[in-house]
């Protein structure tokens, strides 16, 4: 799955498209950024409701390619700018973390 498939195939709203369209091979779902930093794999997609710029800082350190923000959480402008600066793709959806995780898991499994 490519990063852009999160938008084109799974229908999440692309918020920040200034990124390299890398291959995504896994996902990680968590709302504790210390946990994300410790356990998320490189080049994964992060599924979370933590909509603030520190999520970008942690994702950058962990080498995360894309973030899907769930439950239509409002995205602050400084988060979107930070994502652009770090070349991390940012998507928004009204679905919750459980549903999004299932959708991404199924998509990755069929590849």
């Amino acid at each position: 799955m490519k990063t852009s498939d999160l938008g084109t195939a799974l229908g999440y709203e692309p918020v920040q498209q200034d990124y390299t369209d890398r291959e995504i091979s896994s996902g990680y779902t968590s709302d504790l950024l210390s946990d994300v930093m410790a356990n998320a794999a490189e080049n994964c997609v992060l599924v979370t409701i933590q909509a603030h710029k520190n999520t970008i800082a942690v994702s950058s350190m962990a080498g995360i390619s894309a973030i899907v923000i769930c439950n239509s959480r409002p995205l602050p402008e400084d988060m979107i700018q930070a994502a652009a600066g770090e070349q991390i793709a940012l998507f928004l959806t009204e679905k919750n973390q459980f549903t999004v995780s299932g959708e991404i898991y199924n998509r990755l499994k069929t590849e």
Binding site: L32, L33, S34, A57
Partner: peptide, 9 residues
């Protein structure tokens, strides 16, 4: 800061 972010911004 440690539990939620893992660092002090």
């Amino acid at each position: 800061m440690q539990s939620q972010l893992g660092f002090l911004p």
